[in-house]
Structures are given as C-alpha cells and as structure tokens.
Simulated scan of single mutants.
Amino acid sequence: MPSLVNNSILMDPLMYSLLLHKLVLVQVLVGVFLYVNCLIIFTFLKKEMFREDTRYILFAQTLFVDSAFLVICDLLLIFKHYQYRMHIIPCILICTAAALFTDCTPLTLVAMCLERYVAICMPLRHADISTKRTRFLGIIIIWGISSISPLFTFLAYLSVVPPSTLFSYDYCTMEVMYKEEWQAQTRFIILLILFIFMIFIVVFTYIKIMIAARAASSSKNKSTNKSRRTVMLHAFQLFLCIMPFICTYIEMAFWNNDFMVFINVKYSFFIIFYIVPRCLSPLIYGMRDEKFFLVLRHYAVWGFDNYLQTLLINYKKNIT
C-alpha cells in the first residue's frame, strides 16, 4: 500500500494541514476509546464475580485485544503519516501481532455467542459447561485458531525474502509481509473459511435463541430477548471486523483518482471499520449489562456516587 503522505503532499501546506487535522481526529477517537476500555478492564479486575463469569472473561479478552490492535494500527498510521521508515524485523513482528489480534476479535465474539446460547438454551447445564477448565481450553482454542493465518504469513515471508532484506528499512504496513501474490491469496482463503465458519455459528446460535424466546415464559422472556439482541449486535460487530479485508480492494479503485479523495476514503474506512467495531463491545456489555454498569459507574466517578448517596440519606434524615 502506498504511503499516506507522499512528497507532493508534503510540499502543499493546505493538503498537509488537512491530513494533520484528520490524524488529530483519529488520535482523539483512539484516546477516548482506550480510556473507556481501560476503565472497563479496571472494573472487571476489581470484582471477583466478573473474573469468574465466562461471558465477562471473554468480554475482557475482547477489550484487551481490541485495545492492543488499535494501538498498533494507530502507531502504524502515525509512522505512515510522517513517512517513518522502520527496521524490517520489528516491522514484521508488529504486523504479525496486528494480524493475530485482527483474527482473535471475531473468534472471541463467536465464543461469546456460544456462551449466550448455552446460558439460554441449556440453563441447567450452563454451570457444568462453563467451568475454569472449559474457559481455559476455549481461550487456548481461540488464540490457536487466530494464530494460524499470521503464523503462516510470517513463515511464508521468511521463506521468500533474502536474508539481507531483514536488515533493511521500509514503510511499515501489512503489505510488507506479502512479497508474492500467493501469500495474500492463501491468507484470504484462510480468512474466508474462518468467516463462513463463524457466520454459521452466529446464525445457529441466533436461531436457537429465537426458538427459546418463543417457548420461554414471561419471566424468562426478557432475559432471552436481551441475549438475542446481544447475538445480533455481535453479528454486526463480526461484519464490521471482516470489512477491512474487503476495504483494501475498494481503496485500490480510488488510488488512481484524486489523491485527497483516496485519503478521505482511507481515513473513513479506518474510523468506520477499525475504531467503531471496537467501540461496540463496551456498549454491548459495559453499558447494556445492568450489573456491570452499576460497578462501572461507581469507578467512573471515582466512588463519588456512594458519597452523594450518603449525603442524600443524611439530608432526608435531618428533614424528618
């Protein structure tokens, strides 16, 4: 992929100023996202009841992976903006980590859908299935499957480049890893297989929860409908997480047009398909989950909610 800023753009103060404003906007969005994620992770770590619940553990893993992925992508964006050439060895390690995190997020979302399926459709077996052993095994499987494509890309890169290339400097992008066309095609095939597999599981869990919602009593129907909406939101997240693989081909169609149009498209895709999907997880569990939201609100205001509540109680006592 070409550098975001070429020499002709650097020579144009107006265009460079517009690019800088876009970069600053991205930094603000990334900063807000990371702050919210760190606050939610802190809330998760402070309460034992969250650390022993499978869905919150998967939720915390999603936040960690998304945060790490976004930090890496943001650093690469900044390096590209300022045309910083990085040593190839740390570059390919960073790109491999970014690819690993990219694959891990949708797989974790699928695992969260399966957890909701077990909780709603097999409530009596949920405690037996959702144990420490199965959680650990599930996380190992998620990271194992996530590492297949990045590990293949990493080994394939080492096999096709001469040793001297590893000591050179270049603009650090994911495209650096693809020296041969068959490398990109193989990764695309692996991701396509994973995508079909994940879509099948999400659709299966959604249908099963839909059936359970119709058969549930009125007392259980609210919880079942909430789980159904959660699976729908995860499906939407999954769609947004898959879109970056398609965006590369869409961006190529704009490359031969006006350069600023290409830049606007690229920044828009970065915000919509990289930042937005990773803002949905805090909304799905951090805001929609009443139990988690109460604890989150407490830490968000640094415990002042309890202080204000105590003052209100004392005030009412004094009045009476």
Rank of each mutant, 00 (worst) to 15 (best):
I129K: 08
L70V: 07
F245A: 11
L155H: 07
L45C: 06
S146H: 02
I94N: 01
F262A: 02
K266G: 08
L34V: 14
I313A: 10
S149K: 05
L294Y: 09
F262T: 00
T165H: 14
I148W: 01
N225K: 14
I72C: 08
N318E: 09
L70Y: 03
L109D: 10
H87S: 14
V161D: 00
R125K: 12
Y56K: 11
I313H: 04
F259A: 08
F195W: 13
F50E: 07
F59K: 05
F195D: 15
S130Y: 03
I284S: 04
K317R: 15
L14H: 13
Y206Q: 13
T248A: 12
L75I: 15
C279M: 15
D128W: 09
T230R: 09
T62I: 05
A215F: 04
N37G: 13
C91S: 06
L233I: 14
L294D: 02
Q237I: 05
L29N: 03
R228Q: 08
T153R: 06
V176E: 01
A184V: 11
P106N: 07
A216D: 06
Q83K: 13
K266S: 10
Q237S: 12
Y307C: 02
G286A: 06
M122I: 02
E48P: 05
Y56N: 03
V176I: 15
A111S: 11
K179G: 08
L29R: 06
M86I: 05
I211D: 12
F270A: 08
N257L: 15
I263Q: 15
Q27L: 08
I193E: 07
F204M: 13
L18D: 05
D74C: 07
